[in-house]
Design a protein around this nucleic acid. Sequence first.
DNA 1: AACCTTTCTGACTCGCCGTCAGATTTTCGG
DNA 2: CCGAAAATCTGACGGCGAGTCAGAAAGGTT
Lengths: 210, 210
Amino acid sequence: MSDDVFAADGRVIGSRALATRRKLLDATAKLLQEQGILDLRVVDISRDVGSSPATFYQYFNDVDEAILELAKEATEDEKPLVALLQPGWNESDGLERAGRFVDAYMAYWDTHHAVLRARNLKAEEGNRYFRAVRTEANLLVMDALQAMVTEGIAAKRLSDSLDPFTTAAAVVAMCERLLAFRPEMARRGANRDAIRNTLATLLYGALTGH
Amino acid sequence: MSDDVFAADGRVIGSRALATRRKLLDATAKLLQEQGILDLRVVDISRDVGSSPATFYQYFNDVDEAILELAKEATEDEKPLVALLQPGWNESDGLERAGRFVDAYMAYWDTHHAVLRARNLKAEEGNRYFRAVRTEANLLVMDALQAMVTEGIAAKRLSDSLDPFTTAAAVVAMCERLLAFRPEMARRGANRDAIRNTLATLLYGALTGH
DNA sequence: AACCTTTCTGACTCGCCGTCAGATTTTCGG
DNA sequence: CCGAAAATCTGACGGCGAGTCAGAAAGGTT
């Protein structure tokens, strides 16, 4: 197991090259956010870091590879969310706990939405590498959710017609997608708090049966 | 109010041209499905209908315009779904009604997923025309959902910390996104019926409080 | 300073985009 | 059925970004 970073041709790279690669990744993330994946051009990324397009191809075989790397980095930031999904939401402070999870999830989404959107598109269009990254990220959260649902069914608080895995997926789906709607909802008068509280209430209900 | 269809330069077109335009739209939908929006090329669309790229530009200023048209057509197919969202799910056959809605929604999604995915991407990346189309489509369903939630809150079956508009959005979000996960979930053992029944149960719970 | 390794880039080919002038097909009055 | 006019289609072209590669530049070592 090595922490070495490789260039596109497979050689291990030094510290100067590592810095260049980092700048390219940051520029990719920035432009992905500003222009969207459909207008993301290697020329622009290169220009942004003040190098030539050829330099980009020293480190990545194509733009996808850079985005994939960013998606993996986003997955790292998702890990702390799991700690907020411990069983026990059926206690009296359950709704509060749900709220704290929603806060953390919203912050996570705000930071990475452009990359996550790109990741999801690629995954849905069938790219296996993006699929793998997305699945890994989703399973982190879904495993914890699934445990909560299973517990709720066992305690007869939740209907046994719920499939725990699917329910966990549905909860993730709802969180992810609702946040993608946010800018548009804001324009129609739903502010951050309304979204936050409603999502927390729905999660609380779906996961505990209360 | 006219049913005339226009070419890219604004002139009204005849029946031959209309047929060509239709073929171009169908080819666009087909290739969008097969290759995804990132690899959708005008050359391929043209080749598919056996014409030259220049012909494409007779009818659409760019690929976006064709996709937008397809998205509008998809919205038409969404309208019948609203009829399945009449209030009264709190009656004894509520869960069954929820199941029928999910069936219809799944069929709708299966037919149009490639176009809807493209529409959503464009909308989320800030394209105002796609935003408008998506909002129109979502509001169709959301208006009906919102009425059900409001009724549930009034009857004290649902928590009054739920914002009806946001709840409606969350329900749409869950449906949409969960179906996007389907291929991947299938690979992990969640079959169509599990998804169908779980989603129906969750909708029933979120909308009626049962 | 001479040499070697790492990193970067100019310059090139290729393919797609979008345009436009002109070719082809269809329509229609006589 | 003919010829002209209108509608529709396309070949050919300029422009731009993708991706490659040989060689230049920068940095390190003795």
